[in-house]
């Protein structure tokens, strides 16, 4: 995935079944953000793989004061990339055929 300066990692073991999964997000490179970033640490949250939109979560982070509005896209993209990877891994681990 593209280096957005924002890192998103799994915050729990993925059993491949749960639709809600714990993620952890933190800023690795504040220079890649457009707005001034206040170093608050890592943000832990749960994300529903089945029906949630990464951009909506990013918007909630902005509204909660973690990021400025100008960075909502980069935060959303970082979450989206990680979610795509988790889904891709899940698809790969499904046993082929019956």
């Amino acid at each position: 995935a593209e280096d957005t300066g924002v890192r998103v990692e799994l915050n729990e073991e993925d059993d491949g079944k749960k639709s809600s999964i714990a993620l952890k997000l933190w800023v690795e490179d504040p220079k890649k953000l457009k707005g001034k970033y206040k170093d608050t640490g890592a943000i832990e949250f749960t994300f529903n793989l089945a029906n949630e939109d990464p951009e909506v979560v990013a918007q909630e982070m902005v509204e909660s004061g973690f990021f400025l509005d100008c960075d909502v896209k980069v935060v959303g993209k970082s979450i989206r990339d990680r979610v795509a990877l988790i889904k891709w891994r899940r698809e790969r681990t499904v046993s082929p055929g019956n």
Binding site: G41, I43, E44, E60, M61
Partner: peptide, 27 residues
């Protein structure tokens, strides 16, 4: 060294914690 909890109006919980050690190694 402490964790803080922020609850968004939509009901989502954000928990602020120290940045993982792995991040420090990469810099």
């Amino acid at each position: 060294s402490t964790t803080a909890q922020v609850v968004h109006s939509a009901g989502r919980r954000f928990i602020v914690s120290p940045v993982p050690e792995s991040r420090l190694r990469e810099q």
